[in-house]
Each structure stands twice: as structure tokens, then as C-alpha cells.
Write a protein that binds this DNA or RNA. Sequence first.
DNA 1: ATCGGTACCTGCACGC
DNA 2: TGCGTGCAGGTACCGA
Length: 256
Amino acid sequence: MPELPEVETVVRSLAPYITGQTILAAEIRLPRIFKGASPIGRSIRSVSRHGKFILLALAPTGFLTVHLGMTGKLRWNAAREKHTHAIFTLTNGELTYTDARTFGGMESSEALPERVAKLGPDALAIPLSDFLERLRARKDQIKSRLLNQLFVRGVGNIYADEALFRAGIHPKSRTVSKKRALLLHTAMQEVLGEAVAARGSSISDYVDAENQRGSFQNQHRVYGRTGEPCVDCGTPIRRIVIAQRSSHYCPKCQRR
DNA sequence: ATCGGTACCTGCACGC
DNA sequence: TGCGTGCAGGTACCGA
């Protein structure tokens, strides 16, 4: 479910509710989604996003690192549901974690986990020069590269397809001209920025901390539009599989 | 050391 | 009505 724009929206909608509050109790109903020591007694110093990870910085020390996987929801004062796996009682309300597929989870630790700390630069912040350099350093299919969080962090399946369409790049391309690389950097940051402004894409599960859906799914140009006409040329959008994920593209606008 | 493939899990839409 | 199949915003881990 959640890529950079969705995670950013959760962080922004959650922060005002929980910043400064103390964790008074923690009920972990499904133990395998929680790793590390109990955060009870710590207070929440800040809420931020690191790629697709949500970081709750704790006081006096430590982090609660949350990943939403495909269907995770981190909500404020939400009703308990079938797949609500963790409930944190804070000073002034409840923080709940609900996740049907349990691909997500959370980890409490003193330092930021290494697997999170080592991710590439944030997709919204990476400067052009860094992007071009990192693009040149790899030679897998460009779609796979965008999905690789060690390359840049934050891009997932929807926004990879949307950025490649806007840049006119075939998802299987392994090398990209300088001109296309520049376009891709711009396209990636523009589409992510527009999606943040629209509070993310809600296809089935995604909601923010206040249980509100996003609206960017109404602005997708290729993702989920297999067989529908390209918005630029009318050619039917094609679906292929890359890295075991669906890829949607226009065969006329995105040549190899 | 990069890669490409597989595993992890539940729910839903679809065809028969 | 039920059953089998394929698909879904993601990451971790394996062997080549």
C-alpha cells in the first residue's frame, strides 16, 4: 500500500496527536509484528519519515521504527478491528497498528536499525547530480532500480510506473540517456510531490492516521490502467511483469 | 558483489 | 454456493 506519499501523509496526520505524549501501555496481540524492548515509559519526541519507514524518536533515547508493508495502518483513536495487532495507550488516547497481510511491523531499538539507516537518499530530496551518479552505478532494469531502496528510498510500484511514464522511459531499459535521466529526476520528484499534495493514493486499504483516504489514485496515468488509452497518445496501456511486480506503461510513449 | 527469484500473509475478484 | 486461480501499495533472504 504505502509508498513515500502515503507514509508522509501518515506522519503529518499523526504527529500533532502523539508528539510529546508518553507511552503508558503496549498491547501486542500478534507478537511477530513487534521486535525489540518494550517502549513503555518513553515519551515520543518526534515523528518523521525515512523513505517508507515511520520513525518515532523516543525520549530519553531510542526509536520505534514502523513499516506499513502492504496493508498496514497506523491510526489515532481508531476502532479495534480483526487485524489490529498492536495498541499503544498514550497520555491522551490510543495509537493502533492494523495490518491484514502482516508484511509490515515495528521495531523498538536504541539506535536506528542498520537495515534502515543504510538505505539510499530520499527520493524527494536527492539532488540531480547524486541521482545521475547513482543511476550510472547500476545496470539492472530501470524499474527495478527505482524499486530498490538502496538506490533511492521511498519509491514503490505505483510511483515508479508513473515517473517512468512521465519521463518517457521503458521500464525494462538498462541504460538511460542523459536527457531521459534528467527528465526522470524531475518526473520522480514531481509525481511524488503531487501525490503528497493529494494525500496519497488509496486503491483499497490505504488511509492516514485519521482514517482518511487519499485521492491521487484519480490522477494515475498508467498504474492500474491496463488496456485503457494512454492520456498522451491513445495507445492502450500495457502490463508486463518486472521483478515479480506489475509494470504499466505506454508502448508508444515509452520506447526501449 | 550485484542480480534475479522466492517466501512471507490475507482478502478479494473472477471464471467455472 | 463453493472452489480454484491470480492479483494486491513491500521487504528479506537465498543461491548463482
